[in-house]
Simulated assay, not measured.
Amino acid sequence: MAERTTNDEVLSRSELADYLSELSRRFEEGESGVDVPVGNKTVSLGHSEDVSVSVDVVERSSRLRGDRETVTVTMSWKPDS
């Protein structure tokens, strides 16, 4: 069974940088796992030394809708037993 927790919001560049820095700190310091803040909730995830990372960048240009750029970072791992 898969559980999904999502949160969509608009952040300033500074707020986004703070969020990513905090997430990075949690990955570095989490010896038994990592607690990921998602909106008003925190999700506890298991620990693994190796993490698969995928980065996808899309640049779209449209006369009617204007330019749009998207960066998607996906991290996945199998928690240590």
Rank of each mutant, 00 (worst) to 15 (best):
Ser32Lys: 14
Val58Cys: 08
Asp56Ala: 13
Ser14Val: 13
Ser21Lys: 14
Arg63Ala: 14
Asn7Cys: 13
Ala17Val: 06
Val38Arg: 12
Thr74Arg: 12
Thr6Phe: 05
Arg68Met: 13
Ser21Asp: 14
Glu49Cys: 08
Leu20Cys: 11
Ser81Asn: 14
Asn7Glu: 13
Asp56Val: 07
Val71Tyr: 07
Ser21Gly: 14
Ser52Lys: 13
Val71Asn: 11
Arg63Lys: 14
Phe27Asn: 07
Val55Pro: 00
Thr5Phe: 05
Val34Phe: 04
Thr74Ile: 14
Arg65Phe: 12
Arg4Pro: 03
Leu11Ile: 09
Arg26Gly: 00
Val57Gly: 05
Val10Ala: 06
Ser76Cys: 06
His47Gly: 08
Ser81Cys: 08
Val36Thr: 01
Pro37Gly: 15
Glu28Pro: 01
Ser62Pro: 09
Thr72Gly: 11
Arg65Asn: 13
Leu11Pro: 02
Met1Asn: 13
Glu22Met: 01
Ser21Gln: 14
Ser21Tyr: 00
Ser32Thr: 09
Gly46Ile: 02
Ser62Lys: 04
Arg4Thr: 15
Ser44Cys: 05
Val34His: 01
Gly33Met: 09
Thr74Lys: 08
Gly33Tyr: 09
Arg13Cys: 10
Leu16Val: 06
Arg63Gly: 03
Glu9Cys: 12
Leu23Trp: 00
Ser62Gly: 10
Thr5His: 01
Glu49Ile: 03
Val58Thr: 07
Val10Leu: 10
Ser81Phe: 00
Ala17Met: 04
Tyr19Gly: 01
Arg13Gln: 12
Val38Gln: 12
Leu16Phe: 05
Arg65Met: 04
Ala17Gln: 04
Arg26Val: 01
Lys41His: 02
Ser24Gln: 14
Ser24Asp: 13
Glu59His: 05
Ser52Val: 11
Glu22Lys: 04
Leu45Lys: 01
Val43Phe: 03
Arg26Lys: 05
Ser32Val: 05
Gly39Lys: 10
Leu45Ser: 02
Thr5Gln: 09
Leu23Phe: 02
Glu49Thr: 08
Ser52Cys: 06
Ser32Glu: 06
Ser52Asp: 04
Thr42Ala: 03
Glu3Phe: 06
Arg26Ile: 01
Ser21Phe: 06
Leu16Lys: 08
Ala2Tyr: 03
Thr74Ala: 15
Ser52Leu: 12
Thr72Leu: 12
Ser24Pro: 02
Thr74Ser: 11
Ser61Val: 09
Asp35Tyr: 03
Met75Ile: 09
Thr70Met: 14
Val10Pro: 00
Thr42Trp: 04
Glu15His: 05
Ser76Asp: 10
Ser48Val: 02
Glu22Ile: 01
Val58Lys: 12
Ser32Leu: 07
